[in-house]
Nucleic acid binder design. Structure first.
Lengths: 136, 136
DNA sequence: ATCCTACGATGGACAGAATCCAAGTCAATA
DNA sequence: TATTGACTTGGATTCTGTCCATCGTAGGAT
């Protein structure tokens, strides 16, 4: 089962049935659900859970650094629980499938000082696009 | 004046006063307007232009490859007309300001075959995040 | 085990972004 | 200039996400 729940409890996150279900739904690799998808799956086990609760829980998990928000071309944000290991995303241009990938090299090193315009650059996010095997 | 308009005409894009104004508003470097900002600026010259028309025109420009959609956190999509020259974006985490940047190196080369999961990878998009001089 | 209470959950209202649609208008060609 | 199919309009609608007043409950205190 999940060490996500374990970690959350240790960090003093007040545990409720709703929060537990949200965390369980999000547990795993290559999981990139929208808030509504999280709500739908959570509602299978806890039919009365409200959308606001799911949004609250997701927001807190993001603040705690346990989940990362991924912005894609679709309208809804996606939530990625694989926050403990840095990774980038590979997206199928046709069907939207997302895989976690681990490129070599550091994109930050590829941005010379004169291209930084005085910004304090702290992070680089890479999205690879292409066609997945089924869509090719 | 704009070679954007020129190119569009050559490619058989039916020209209307509304489309011309949208294309003119988008013309230039370091332009990253939201659809609503495009609408506002277009309406200065063509007060009756509707939002739907702006959205239609923007969508077509994207399909034609003349404009790129840039998705930023939690806000409206931005439209970047600088599509003819490859570049990446540097975004201020605080105020949302966007700059075009040109990193060295090729992120595609940093994604080994065993990390491609059989995808035909065609493109890599990099978003650098940090604080701009005013927000730091 | 029970009580307390601050924190969390609820759901309906609300807001912003984008899309849809039926009806009216007009650019481009003949 | 007449025609016609593509374009525009604006209001309704959908989709995401947030807010808020009220109700419920997890977990420490007794």
């Amino acid at each position: 089962m999940s060490d996500l729940l374990e970690r959350l409890r240790e960090r003093g996150w007040r545990m409720t049935s709703q929060r537990r279900v949200v965390a369980e739904v999000l547990d795993g690799d290559h999981v990139h659900l929208t808030a509504d998808e999280v709500h739908a799956r959570a509602a299978e086990r806890l039919p009365e859970i409200s959308r606001a609760t799911v949004y609250n829980a997701l927001g807190e998990l993001v603040l705690l650094g346990e989940v990362v928000e991924v912005v894609t071309e679709g309208r809804a944000k996606r939530y990625d629980p694989n926050a403990h290991r840095p990774h980038q995303h590979l997206v199928c241009s046709s069907c939207g499938t997302i895989r976690d990938v681990h490129p070599t090299g550091d994109p930050l090193a590829d941005l010379p000082a004169e291209e930084r315009f005085g910004f304090t650059v702290s992070d680089a996010e890479v999205v690879y696009r292409g066609l997945c095997p089924s869509c090719a």
